[in-house]
Amino acid sequence: MAQIVKRAYKYRFYPTPEQAEELARTFGCVRLVYNKALEERTRAYTLQGRRVSYVESSAALTVWKRSGDYDFLSEVSSVPLQQALRHLQAAFANFFAKRAKYPTFKSRKKSRASAEYTRSAFRWRDGALTLAKMDAPLAIAWSRPLPEGAEPSTVTVSKDAAGRWFVSLLVEEEISPLPPVAENVGIDAGITALATLSTGEKIVNPCHERRDRRKLAKAQRALARKEKGSANRAKARLKMARAHARAHARVTDRRRDHLHKVTTRLVRDNQVIAVEDLTVRNMVKNHSLARAISDASWRQMRSMLEYKAAWYGRTLVAVDRWFPSSKLCSACGALQDRMPLHARAWQCACGAAHDRDVNAAQNVLAAGLAES
């Protein structure tokens, strides 16, 4: 049975100088409102033990606009500012429900520059998108079409560290489940191989971050050779910063594209998908493996599998993280006393020879099928 889901379509766009200036001003105001509201909430929570509601924060925003110090907040659309307060409210709700840490302040350098517009703050007409406070529509590069007849309910505009502008359109879309299939698969996440399947297939980890790391190291060496305080050093520093931003943007794009292709294939070809319930947040604390684990993006792959399985009528099962998938013989069920990381192949007393990762994936599948 088809279901209606909310789906975001992201496109690159090229603003005019006037639009770029308006958006930059909006980004700054969004960040200011978020931080100021967070400061007020923190003060009330720390000194009085009181929780501030969204309604109180919204009323405070009105007062700030009328004060002489923050009257410039009235020069941008009010909707992105209200959305910033809603996002802060959601952050506190997650904190009090123990689903997330305490909200942190937004940094101009580290936080993503973005603004969210709801239906009252943009005009969508004949495929042209015009934001509030703007006279002309955005010049969007339509890399793929929106679903026929789709009307955006929310628009998010952002700018990445490499200076590229993006617009994300949230639309409602009808998605039909895929026909049932007989195949099931277990997945063992890894570093050398992004994922090893219970079928014996190993999906290679492209290691996108490692490729661009060499280019960044070259730019850093060039910077180190320049005399401190010189004009050439300033130029080299700027060049390195740009190279760093471009490299990370390129790595992110390639990694996401690869993960989309892998997860779509896995969901299309299998009815039940069993994965390990890994705690990536704790695993990256291992400084020897943190870079490789982050480059593999296991958490992002798991997230993609979750929503795609829900969309297309598949079952995703997360096997307990303490399940001894690597030490268990998938042929006879015997549990080995120990299995060091360097042991990539081993033989059980029953005579079965195992590839460590394939055996783990087969055990994950068996445990997943038992749970489902």
Rank of each mutant, 00 (worst) to 15 (best):
L266H: 09
T252K: 15
V272H: 12
R268W: 05
V284Y: 02
V251C: 09
T264G: 07
V272L: 15
I273C: 06
V275K: 01
K261S: 09
I273K: 08
M283Q: 11
R250V: 03
A274S: 15
D277C: 08
L259N: 02
E276S: 11
D269A: 14
H260Q: 13
D253C: 02
R246W: 06
V262E: 05
D277L: 08
V251P: 00
T279V: 14
R256A: 11
H258T: 14
R256T: 13
R254C: 05
V262N: 05
R268C: 01
R268A: 09
V251L: 03
R250Y: 10
R246L: 10
L266F: 07
R265W: 11
N282P: 01
V251Q: 02
D257H: 12
A274M: 04
K261Q: 15
R265V: 00
T279D: 14
R281G: 09
D277K: 07
R246E: 14
M283C: 03
T279G: 05
T279I: 07
L266N: 07
V262T: 13
T252G: 12
R268P: 01
N270R: 08
V280F: 09
V284H: 07
T279E: 13
A247W: 00
V251A: 13
N282Q: 13
H248V: 03
R250T: 14
R256K: 14
V272N: 06
V275G: 02
R281D: 13
Q271G: 11
I273S: 06
R254Y: 07
L259W: 01
R255K: 06
R256W: 03
A247R: 00
M283E: 04
N282F: 03
V251M: 05
D277I: 10
T252Y: 03
T264D: 12
R250E: 12
H248M: 11
V262Y: 07
R254T: 01
T279N: 15
R256M: 09
N282I: 01
V275M: 08
H260N: 13
H260W: 05
Q271R: 09
V267D: 08
H258R: 13
N270S: 10
H248A: 11
I273D: 08
D277S: 11
R246A: 13
V280Y: 05
L266C: 09
K261F: 01
A247P: 00
D277Y: 10
R254W: 04
H260C: 05
M283P: 03
V251E: 02
V275E: 03
I273A: 07
R268N: 05
H258I: 00
T263L: 08
V272C: 04
L259E: 04
E276N: 14
A274G: 15
T264C: 04
T263S: 15
H248D: 04
K261T: 10
T264H: 07
V251D: 04
D277Q: 12
E276K: 14
